[in-house]
Design a protein around this nucleic acid. Sequence first.
DNA 1: CTTTTTTATAGTCACTCTGACTATAAAGGG
DNA 2: CCCTTTATAGTCAGAGTGACTATAAAAAAG
Lengths: 254, 254
Amino acid sequence: MTTPAPEGYDPHAYAPFAVTVDLAVFTVREARLHVLLVERGQEPFRGRWALPGGFLLPRESADDAARRELAEETGLGPDTVGALHLEQLRTYTGPDRDPRMRVVSVAYAALLPDLPEPRGGGDAASARWWEADAAGPLAFDHDTILADARDRIGAKLEYSCLATAFCPAEFTLGELQQVYETVWGVELDRPNFRRKVLSAPDFVQPVGGPPRRTGARGKPAALYRAGDATALHPPLLRPPRTDATPSATEGHDR
Amino acid sequence: MTTPAPEGYDPHAYAPFAVTVDLAVFTVREARLHVLLVERGQEPFRGRWALPGGFLLPRESADDAARRELAEETGLGPDTVGALHLEQLRTYTGPDRDPRMRVVSVAYAALLPDLPEPRGGGDAASARWWEADAAGPLAFDHDTILADARDRIGAKLEYSCLATAFCPAEFTLGELQQVYETVWGVELDRPNFRRKVLSAPDFVQPVGGPPRRTGARGKPAALYRAGDATALHPPLLRPPRTDATPSATEGHDR
DNA sequence: CTTTTTTATAGTCACTCTGACTATAAAGGG
DNA sequence: CCCTTTATAGTCAGAGTGACTATAAAAAAG
């Protein structure tokens, strides 16, 4: 940056911006994709739901700010928040995206296993999970951010090992498949899914010991934990949708 | 953003940041990947090379700023700049990335066909193409940005139709293959490459008329232009490198 | 003008991967 | 004890891929 650097270099000669982070926090519960939203307590968009987020502190990176805000909104311990998958999505810079002032926002996507209801700790008076499809019109440009985040997550499931971030430490292949089916909105063939996951090196590793027994019906499933790989070879391509879905990875800025 | 919104909402109560865009502008010339760099005229990093870029104007989006800066640095007409492929990479927010002040930078990658030397118009006194592998230590965190940009471009060639952005309006399959080989740093089998490109729907369309005749040696190649597709089905996966290359898509923020 | 060289394009073939499907195993419920 | 449910194993045809060979169309060499 700053290539055509100014002479005296007075910081106030350049337009100051407020910088925030916005978080699209996803989980899969009851076979549906959920997103964490908070209700706004004041204008603008008072009473509307919004993605959690907040301002960067003066000496804080956006990654740090995202983890801090996430801990505040969810009440998760810093150990949990420090370990979870957090991915920078893109930055939204439309000049009118906040009616009060010029704000650029660095958006993140975070993936969580199914957890108990968030404790509305910190400043978020009311935070709760919403089914992603039912997330009404949100404040600011958060509908756009949410849609971009869903697209990105869906795409990354294909060629990364991201899906395990939705699962608890130990999980069955059925649970992992449920993640794919929920995010993609398709049904997958179980033996084929199994074959592909197990043939991808280091995607999952079997965990010894007896299978977990919840009040489930059929044959108990073997447990796995996430492997060391981060990329998926070969990729797990989602079946082509009959209705042409434009990939929507391109173009818009606000 | 701004969920825990303040009461009186004084903009100066929140840390102001300067916001810039940085551009990693790539082209393929003589079978090598090149990147556009500018030499810094003042401190810090005086005399070092850097990615072109600059500050956002008060009512300008980052996309607009990127196109404006690109036009200024390259001397390209607004029509050309308006049409080229510009992709937001990620935003760099390390608190110490600029020693003078707090600057967050939205990084973009841009792809150009091989063009004559940039006219150092605008404020960039000296802008020139550097071979990407020979781009020495750059100013600020631009080495990181450049490396991230190369990773991203290489990955996107696999599953998008991005490669045509490196080619002129009409190109041969050999030229398109050269783009893949240069960016990936591998050699590809020509008949197989041809088969895959032509079988991908709407990746390229043949252009009628006589083949272009430069002083080339062998049988003249048919010309194609970019098709309507933006995504590539099936993807054109790069051959697995013998030396394990970590995908480097994850993690670092500055 | 013929031959050689060079590049583009067509075609082959074995192997792998994939999707669709069937079969068996291990649990719980009646 | 049989039936239902879920997990896991296996099968098979077709698509896709990598490695390779063959032919076509140009320019350069002789």
